[in-house]
Design a protein around this nucleic acid. Structure first.
Length: 496
RNA sequence: GGCGCCGUACCCAAGUGGCUAAGGGAGCAGUCUGCAAAACUGCGAUUCAGCGGUUCGAACCCGCUCGGCGCCUCCA
């Protein structure tokens, strides 16, 4: 059964057949580097990270390109405000992007083109469009003429008449049609620019992705992705530019991820209801890898095309679900030396059923919530088998299953000893009136040495059968939110 | 105003024509435990926003109503 994926262009799930056997070429719109990224950007990067990982898991060779828009009005505005060169801004936020994505465990694409590295490609594309009569020049600006491209609107399901009826912006009088968009913008005095046949200028946003994707992957490639807010106008314009220029099919499958929302509203800069990735990590009580795992789990627990509502509660639920799985992995490690193997036959059946369900789920348009459900069913089954007795060998295999099938999701790779069990009481702070989120989780301040000392004292009391003292210590810790768990080997684990 | 998406248990969330409506979180009960915790087992939607229609059969298809959101402007 081939993998199926939802194609925005046809509004249907389609069987996926790459252009080149066993190879996937994909291009995803990256970010404009003028500020720290928020969770919405993380959602997109994570979605396509998992898609890429799963293709690789399934045996495909993947060529994955994701761009940086490193020249743009927003970058220039910020540079002017800070009084620094514009490329200081873009370089700073490219580094910030790498830091944030690295923290989230997102693997790097094979290619990360920057707009400013592709000015010659952009210029030849714009020139080509002018020569073909699909674009026109006005005072050093170049515009794409949407009326000259009959398929305009096909991807987004819009048509020019409807668009114009609803146009909410003032029409630039230099445009032949209100929906025409800039391919090349003449530089204003003091602005950076590159020489072109139409004078000094810089590229429009839409042409960058067309030029970079064609330069990196060729005129026709398999998958083009991005957030669903890019469908119109950005991706619609890319189709017009690329097809208009090459005369060939552009992306064969269009894949779009849903938004991250807060209180049902799209997380965005303009609404001010966003969390930056950096702040999530800074405010988290957990280590970077544990925090990243929680975010990843939360994101994958909703299908990539649906909107995902973000809250501290949602993160907490993800943490609890992960605790259960890491708890099993830890117990599997501890049972390595057992000789008992009463459950090994069941183990074979259980692991096969899991692998089947996992693959079926992921093959069905990357249904990660269903894949996670398969993991939890597997966890339950392995637990039952463990009660009967699992040999050291089968235990190793069980852990290998988590490692192998966790990899395409980017989950379950943290050594269980580094996993911090228990959820931290989390709060989402709000500025009164506005929906501004100011906090992610409460910092807990108990000194860990003190907790360990209390556990030692309690152990001594228990060994003397002094349960009254032992229980008082436990109560005292409980009052501070510390919960103890006595383990079969005589040690005590604690969590908040 | 145009186009489009969504509304499934206390919360999150799969399922989009036909076995008992996945899974997670929270909750309750039992097993285990010195007692707990963890783990395991069991319980929990006669029902899928509402109403009407199509069908042998619908949460899934069609229509209307109510509620929420998105795109049409930079946006992942």
């Amino acid at each position: 059964m081939p993998l199926t994926l939802y194609n925005t262009r046809t509004k249907k799930k389609e069987k996926f057949f790459p252009l080149i056997f066993n190879e996937v070429r994909m291009y995803v719109c990256g970010v404009t580097v003028y500020d720290d990224c928020h969770l919405g950007h993380a959602r997109s990067a994570l979605t396509f990270d998992v898609i890429r990982r799963y293709f690789e898991f399934s045996g495909y060779k993947v060529t994955y390109a994701r761009n940086f828009t490193d020249i743009d009005d927003k970058i220039l505005n910020r540079a002017q405000k800070e009084g620094v060169p514009w490329n200081d801004i873009s370089e700073r936020y490219i580094q910030a992007f790498y830091r944030d994505m690295g923290a989230l465990g997102i693997t790097k694409p094979n290619m990360e083109p920057r707009a400013t590295e592709h000015i010659p490609d952009i210029l030849s594309m714009v020139e080509g469009l002018v020569n073909k009569g699909l674009a026109y020049v006005v005072n050093g600006d170049v515009y794409f003429s949407v009326r000259k491209f009959p398929a305009y609107g096909q991807l987004s399901g819009k048509n020019l008449e409807e668009l114009q009826a609803g146009a909410r912006i003032e029409v630039d009088p230099r445009k032949q049609d209100p929906m025409d968009f800039a391919l090349w913008k003449a530089s204003k005095p003091g602005e950076p620019g590159w020489d072109s046949p139409w004078g000094k200028g810089r590229p429009g946003w839409h042409i960058e992705c067309s030029a970079m994707s064609v330069a990196k992957l060729g005129p026709t490639f398999d998958i083009h992705g991005g957030g669903k807010d890019l469908i119109f106008p950005h991706h619609e314009n890319e189709v017009a530019q690329s097809c208009g220029y090459t005369g060939k099919e552009f992306a064969r499958y269009w894949v779009h991820n849903g938004f991250v929302t807060v209180d049902k509203e799209k997380m965005s800069k303009s609404l001010g209801n966003f969390f930056t990735i950096r702040e999530i990590f800074e405010k988290s009580e957990y280590s970077e890898s544990v925090t990243a795992e929680c975010i990843r789990y939360l994101f994958l627990s909703t299908h990539y095309r649906s909107d995902l509502s973000f809250s501290d509660n949602a993160i907490g639920e993800s943490k609890s679900a992960l605790d259960n799985i890491y708890g099993l992995i830890q117990r599997l490690e501890e049972s390595d030396s057992r000789e008992n193997n009463l459950g090994d036959e069941d183990w074979e059946r259980v692991s096969k059923e899991f692998a089947k369900k996992f693959q079926e789920s992921m093959d069905d348009d990357f249904n990660t919530p269903k894949a996670l459900a398969a993991f939890h069913e597997f966890r339950g089954e392995v637990n039952k088998v463990m009660v009967k007795g699992l040999s050291g060998d089968a235990s190793k295999k069980a852990r290998a299953v988590f490692a192998k099938f966790g990899k395409p999701l980017g989950l379950f790779h943290i050594p269980s000893k580094e996993w911090k069990f228990g959820i931290i009481r989390a709060t989402v702070g709000r500025v009164s009136g506005a929906s501004t989120v100011t906090g992610f989780s409460e910092k807990v301040t108990q000194a860990e040495e003190w907790i360990e000392e209390q556990i030692r004292l309690r152990k001594e009391a228990r060994e003397k059968k002094d349960f009254l003292t032992a229980d008082n210590i436990r109560k005292e810790l409980a009052a501070k939110g510390i919960i103890l768990e006595d383990r079969p080997d005589g040690t005590t684990r604690w969590k908040r």
